[in-house]
């Protein structure tokens, strides 16, 4: 049975809760809490992508667009219209859902390469719009002055406060998604992945399931985008380019897309790589990413979470 054990989730939650305190004890990693905010934001996207790609088997190379739509809708509505950020966040998710539905419904009829190209083209089109609609988005110069978040007078105005806010969302999304995976709906998704003819012969409405996960993963990306915008108070289009979509792909491939934990591990490693460990590579980090993605594809088809299983079968074969 596919069970996602409760104990690791509890340990994970405990680690997340204590992490800022631990980080602040060690001066060298004091700023890690700040990076962990971004890890959390990216985790929201990869959790949805893992469900979409790893479980349901539908590829997307365009999720940077949904991330961007969330960020820009939040940014535009709060700065230009002074709306409450939380309401903007919900509006952003609704808008993203509608766009995902419109793009997803025809796209998800496509398979494999076609779906990859369709999502890729969609992502680039949205990126061009962010750059061109200067009146709304500020164009390539970006959009400053996006307000921070507060709730009932409580301001999320420090790294640690925002950290807990973001990770509360991540934990909720993780548990929600894990519940889906362990239910009839999750089985239906995995069924679609292995054999569409057999899945539909079991009564699975393939089109409906695909569109639901696609929209779900897009809405999570939108939420991540809103949180990103309110954290940095500034956004510009380059964050939401094609390379970010590929980076998301690297995250879930490295972590292992067949397992929801892979989404967390991948987001964690790649975010730390790009924010911290690859600094001295500067722009050439793209070579490192390409190499990681290629090596993982060839040698770790199930990602890092698949390593224990690989070792086990390797030992078994040795004996």
């Amino acid at each position: 049975m596919l069970q996602i054990a409760k104990l690791p989730i509890a340990i994970f939650a405990a680690l997340i809760i204590t992490f800022p305190w631990m980080a602040h004890q060690i001066p060298v990693i004091d700023h890690y809490a700040d990076i962990m905010v971004f890890v959390g934001i990216y985790c929201l996207i990869t959790i949805g992508l893992s469900l979409l790609m790893g479980y349901a088997g539908q590829i997307s190379v365009g999720h940077a667009a949904f991330f961007g739509i969330g960020a820009y809708v939040s940014g535009i509505l709060t700065t230009n219209y002074g709306l409450n950020p939380w309401i903007c966040m919900i509006i952003a998710m609704l808008i993203t859902a509608v766009i995902a539905l419109l793009v997803g419904a025809p796209s998800l009829k496509l398979k494999g390469h076609y779906l990859a190209m369709a999502t890729l083209a969609f992502g680039i089109i949205i990126f061009i719009i962010f750059n061109e609609e200067i009146e709304w988005t500020g164009g390539p110069d970006g959009m400053p002055g996006i307000p921070g978040l507060s709730l009932f007078g409580f301001k999320f105005d420090s790294v640690d406060k925002y950290y807990y806010l973001v990770w509360a969302f991540v934990l909720a999304a993780f548990i929600f998604t894990a519940n889906i995976i362990q239910s009839d709906a999750g089985r239906a998704l995995r069924a679609i992945h292995t054999s569409e003819p057999a899945a539909s012969a079991m009564g699975v409405d393939i089109a409906k399931f695909k569109i639901i996960v696609f929209v779900y993963s897009a809405v999570l990306a939108s939420l991540a985008g809103s949180l990103y915008a309110h954290y940095l108070n500034f956004i510009n289009p380059s964050t939401f380019d094609l390379f970010f979509s590929i980076k998301l792909l690297i995250m879930i491939a490295l972590g292992g897309m067949h397992n929801i934990w892979g989404a967390i591990i991948g987001a964690l490693l790649i975010t730390f790589l790009s924010y911290e460990w690859l600094h001295y590579f500067e722009e050439f980090e793209v070579i490192v990413y390409g190499a990681i993605l290629l090596l993982v594809t060839i040698f770790l088809p199930n990602g890092l979470v698949g390593v224990p299983e690989m070792l086990k079968s390797w030992v078994r074969r040795k004996n």
């Binding site: 049975m1 596919l2 009839d184 089985r187 239906a188 995995r190 069924a191 992945h193 292995t194 054999s195 003819p197 057999a198 899945a199 012969a201 079991m202 699975v204 067949h258």
Partner: peptide, 14 residues
């Protein structure tokens, strides 16, 4: 056309 990524039980549950 079994769901090869699932157990025997999960296949029937499907």
């Amino acid at each position: 056309e079994l769901f090869s990524n699932m157990t025997v039980l999960e296949n029937v549950m499907m």
